[in-house]
């Protein structure tokens, strides 16, 4: 369905929940390490603290560094409008799934460019590593989404979830599972999680995503952090609504919406727990072995598309 009002409500929900999801992942990781860990609401306090502080920009930087936080955040907000959360509705007339993928790409492009802008070596290293990862993972994401689009006949995310929910279990085929697996690996790669990158590291030589954020401070850093957290929740929302949207409401009535909301929160929590468990059980992979894992994700997505035609 194309419903701007519902889209705005869903976008606000995503933006509001984003720091909470990050907080939950950190808390679960800490408890698995036998530590108390920070409070679940800590990311909210961090963002609040950062918004109060002033920004320092390097004297070598140009206008790119100044606009990048706003571009990234704006891209995430627009993408949030296009993703259905608990109702199979979004602001579909703005764009479909391809637009969402390229909104992420725009944000990534500006982030990498701004990292090079400040003229520091770590920014450059982070950008080159990020580009290496995303050059392999983007085709995997697109293929995974195509497989969902092939099954349902539309690339509009609200439309995909609508068809899958209405079609029910008849439409469940191996394609969805393979594509979901590929998308899961892509989520870990795009959001700088172990085994690709360590979000909690302080070693600047090993950073990929964090290295690109080293130059920001104050409000700009708050916007970049918020954009990263939102990206994670968006990936989770897309993963569930494109492949297993069962439980989402197809009409605006009290009971279906309540079920849709609860289903979404449960799925969000499950995905976050899975990320925390995987992060705690393995170490970061050596940089030059990452393309192997990324290509694995691409193969899974490719198999998903193939299995649609063969099976």
């Amino acid at each position: 369905m194309n419903d701007p009002l519902l889209a705005i409500i869903q976008a606000a929900l995503i933006l509001g929940l984003a720091p909470l999801v990050t907080g939950i992942i950190r808390k679960v990781k800490a408890v698995l390490q036998s530590r108390q860990g920070p409070p679940i609401l800590q990311p909210y306090y961090d963002l609040q603290k950062l918004f109060r502080k002033s920004s320092v920009v390097s004297s070598d930087a140009s206008w790119v560094s100044i606009i990048t936080p706003y571009v990234c955040m704006a891209a995430m907000v627009v993408a949030a409008l296009l993703v259905p959360v608990f109702v199979t509705a979004s602001f579909g007339s703005l764009g479909d799934l391809i637009v969402v993928v390229y909104l992420f790409a725009t944000a990534r492009f500006f982030m990498a460019l701004a990292a090079l802008d400040a003229g520091s070596t770590f920014g450059g290293m982070g950008s080159s590593r990020e580009m290496m990862i995303s050059s392999i993972i983007e085709p995997a994401i697109l293929l995974a989404i195509f497989s969902a689009a092939l099954i349902t006949g539309t690339t509009d995310l609200a439309g995909i979830s609508q068809v899958l929910v209405v079609g029910g279990y008849d439409l469940v085929r191996p394609t969805l599972f393979l594509a979901f697996a590929a998308f899961f690996i892509a989520t870990l790669a795009e959001n700088a999680r172990i085994p690709f990158d360590n979000p909690a590291t302080h070693l600047e030589l090993t950073m990929i995503h964090e290295a690109m954020l080293l130059e920001y401070s104050g409000k700009k850093l708050a916007l970049m952090e918020m954009a990263s957290m939102t990206k994670l929740v968006l990936f989770i929302a897309i993963a569930w609504s494109a492949f297993f949207p069962f439980g989402m409401a197809t009409e605006v009535a009290i009971l279906p919406v309540a079920i849709g909301l609860i289903a979404f929160l449960v799925k969000l929590l499950l995905f976050a727990l899975a990320i925390a468990l995987i992060e705690s059980s393995m170490s970061k992979m050596r940089l030059f072995r990452l393309p192997n894992l990324l290509t694995g994700s691409f193969i899974l997505a490719f198999l998903a598309v193939m299995s649609f035609y063969i099976l």
Binding site: K29, S34, A200, S280, S283, K284
Partner: peptide
Amino acid sequence: IALDTAFSIGAQHAYI
């Protein structure tokens, strides 16, 4: 050494 490979559970075990 475990921490620098981002194997946090093992690292915390040694730090405990």
